[in-house]
Design a protein around this nucleic acid. Sequence first.
RNA 1: GCUGGCGUAGCUCAACGGCAGAGCAGCUGAUUUGUAAUCAGCAGGUUGGGGGUUCGAAUCCCUCCGCCAGCUCCA
Length: 579
Amino acid sequence: MEKLEKEKLDKLEILRHSTSHILAQAVKRIFPQAKLGIGPPIKDGFYYDFDIDGELLSKNLSRIKEEMENIVKQDLPFQKEKVSKEKAREIFEERNEPYKLELIDEIDDSYVTLYRQGEFVDLCRGPHLKSTGEVKFFTLLSVAGAYWRGKEGNPMLSRIYGTSFFTKKELDKYLKQLEEAKKRDHRKLGKELGIFDIYPDYLGPGLAVYHPNGSIIRDIIERFEKEEHLKRGYQFVVTPHISRSHLWKVSGHLDFYRENMYVFSVGGQEYVLKPMNCPGHIMVYKSKQRSYRDLPLRLFELGTVYRREESGVLHGLLRLRGFTQDDAHIFCLPSQLIDEVRGVLKFALFMMDTFKLGYKITLSTRPVKYIGSEKSWEVATDALKEALRREGLDFEIAPGEGAFYGPKIDIQMEDALGRLWQGPTIQVDFNLPERFDLTYISAEGEKKRVVMIHRVVLGTIDRFLGVLIEHLEGKFPVWLAPVQVRVLTITDKEIPFAKDIYEKIKSEGIRVELDSRNEMLSYKIRESQLQKIPYMVVVGKRETENKLLTVRKRNGENLKNISLENFLKMIKEDISRKK
RNA sequence: GCUGGCGUAGCUCAACGGCAGAGCAGCUGAUUUGUAAUCAGCAGGUUGGGGGUUCGAAUCCCUCCGCCAGCUCCA
């Protein structure tokens, strides 16, 4: 079964790779001056990069697609050819393809493979379909810039994205999925549901304003976080948003990240808007001499930080310039490292579980540029590995992907559409304990260097909320829903009874609203439904007479003749079980 | 930051060199209604900002700001 799946995937890759060659052929037919970059299959389709004015491509996308259809009709065979590097060089020199020449020079073999279809030839490992006629259901999606070989200093090429399938059904399904993802867009839902908004002109880009509904959700999540941190032996601290730049000189951030920090002068003193919480927490650690008996020390803060992110990367709540981390720093003995990491792993996965998110774990090891000794990296990396092993968790290793100051574990959250988002992280830091000279007195009475762990268990509250909106399509479970119940009247006659119900529900601490407007019931239901409110209580003549409730659930299901007591019990059950 | 697309009423969009418009939302009134849109009226705009071309600019040109897709980045 699994093997079949794999084969199907491979076939799809071949199809898409072949489609990308057809795309390149079409572009070369229409724009012979275009230089070819690369054109691989990717997760949901394929792309091809061209060195040509992107405007020409985006204005002619439909023409390019038509030409691709012609090529399909011509049913040109894909012909594989094995040639010497010299021969290949001749071919692409003649065709004036500098990027292909660059690729040839980097191939380690003395032979390379080419694929031809009609007048078109490409340097390519393959494999491909038998002929262009086998490609049937494809579409071109967008044009975007991309640096040659993904390096910022390189020329910017124009990339056409597209996708291709074996059946029309699959293509339609994919296009529908794109629509579906659009519907879940947290920026759109965030606005519609009164959760948050961004005012680039007045307030500035990348700075979110939480409206009442969003603030309630945040508050519930934050209270939950605080409770859970207390249970796990964390202590709370609060550190200021601005501080003298001296702090950031010692930490090294000012030297490395000045461009990304908000630095300003007041009264001849240079100040910095904090981009991280760690130096503040370090002040607490340093405030007195620490004994090994004090360790581990776990300091927690819902710390709001500001980073000057590049304008092109901002994205709703998922990438902001001001955001709040559920940030903690653990100061511990080397011998405590494994257990502390295990504790954080348990904690993070408990959070994923609570919010019904899947996850994927990655361990990132020493990069090329690093500080600290090789030995300490090895010890720390082994400790992270051992912690993962003892928790029985699967993980992938990302070689060389660690931060310059230490190895780390990243947990990506998987949402309802199977998309992955950056979530909790656990990082060991060799840098700051040195820079701030963080020590403890050991049992032998010696001064020793403390081990420092940075960790977040949701990541940032902002991003987490954004992911949650997309994951749930805005349908927050009862414990998080900004409005848990809305009472709807049918005519004005029911207002006194509805008000009574509303007051009773409200006095139980449940977030309830009363819609007693002079509108049709179906209209009120529609509005509540669009607001994704979990429970609607419909109050009409029947309910007023028999004093029992009719409850419409968000999924359209109706509960008839339910007593107020039972309804309240049901909601409280939802809340306590975090449903 | 880079490449391309885009910016018109609170929202979704039309007008594309010749009087700035529609639907929804809002307000007012009528209607008293049983499970996803009752009817009518009213109001709503420096067409992102600045500059230019033109008898005339939402529309064409320049520039700045911002948004979207992607690339790069993410301590």
